[in-house]
Design a protein around this nucleic acid. Sequence first.
DNA 1: GCAAATTTGTCCGTATGTATC
DNA 2: AGATACATACGGACAAATTTG
Lengths: 247, 247
Amino acid sequence: MSGKPEPGAKTGRQSLRQEVVEGIKRYILEEKLRPGDPLPSETALCEELGASRSSVREAVKILNALDIVEVRHGHGTYVGRLSLSALVESLTFRGMLSPDDDFRVMADLVDVRELFERGMAERIVALLTTSQLDVLEGLVARMRETGAKDGHGFVEVDREFHAQLVKPLGNVLIGQLSMAFWEVYTVVAPHLDGFDAAYEASTIADHQAIVDAARAGDVPGFLNALTRHYTPVRRRIADARERREAG
Amino acid sequence: MSGKPEPGAKTGRQSLRQEVVEGIKRYILEEKLRPGDPLPSETALCEELGASRSSVREAVKILNALDIVEVRHGHGTYVGRLSLSALVESLTFRGMLSPDDDFRVMADLVDVRELFERGMAERIVALLTTSQLDVLEGLVARMRETGAKDGHGFVEVDREFHAQLVKPLGNVLIGQLSMAFWEVYTVVAPHLDGFDAAYEASTIADHQAIVDAARAGDVPGFLNALTRHYTPVRRRIADARERREAG
DNA sequence: GCAAATTTGTCCGTATGTATC
DNA sequence: AGATACATACGGACAAATTTG
């Protein structure tokens, strides 16, 4: 029980930390805990899993990075929200790291976002209710008001628009991935030198066209509107890339 | 420099650990390191970032979970591969956790995989070279040989097939996401009680049909083949769900 | 508002396992 | 085999945050 790491279990075992990680995961599964439920304190986990506090802490930090566990200082440890925050962190850093390939990361990102909306176009148009369409219309209206003065607010409304767009699908994974990519895009884009973050005036009209086509049940029109919306985004990335290679 | 955590910086700051996380990321960015490049040792990072080993270790473990950093015991710390391993871990656990909603996670997963291939159908058919088609054909042939005797080998070939299918797109994100979802699926599926993991005999024929359509440049046929391939997968998930709700 | 209790955050010192030379 | 450099793990102590009486 003291310093020694269990000389009895000499059989080739993983790092103790990894054992603790699996132990905590197993604990959550076996106790059938749900996001937000409290976990034993660090000292309690030490006893339960037979490890020192350092090992338990490192394990908890790993699970925290994956949003499997949530830690509140001076309060306790809880089951995490299981969001895709780890994907955001990882992809954001990848976008920052690549020295000349960073534009490709952004292009790939936008491609996937467009793919989600194009590929689900039929279902989106069919499933959007009148009230959901009104919400989208309201967001476009907010774009018109916010657009000129507040850049940050505009971006936020834009985000919400695309979140609402894929919502009727009922596929939570698509929604979360879409938002994760959106977040990565907005974080990485400003760091690309020569990147023009300004939104074209046409952006608002493009969003309006998407809503109009959806309301009319016009799938081809919906797809056309998506093309008009994403083309300038792709164009901006390509322009910035050329500008760097040139200048 | 001793025990106290810099009383001078009283301005509302994050946890020191998070500071160290950001510090290490900044170090990699500023030094323009690439995956595989060595990082300073833990003790060196302690000095450089003004933190104790515990804090540095916890920070390194967090970055390790995101594959931003890779640790080799007794050797050193290196820049990670920036894979999507964190997404796999996170989604896998989500699939295991949900008490009755786990089938939905799987269904969402399969939907996205199919969406990738359906949405990119035109580009895939157009971009697949003859040699790439031969590779796909060879994988189908290996399915025929491996199929009966070795279930695990079959699954591996299946995985490789879909990896090769999205490869010509040149969108690394789609390829990695596709493989990540595939991995989650194969890990979670066996844990769903009443889930029939056996592959239908038609699976091989469905893959062959995909190759044939692609070789013929027949996009509608390619889409049909994808439908035939994914329908039984979706059916199996729906069956398992009904079986649980019934039994 | 204060103080006590609980819990996480941070530090240090030391010993051990592992890989390279 | 020995030496060195590194990550792994332990245990104890104190600081900081949060809740509760």
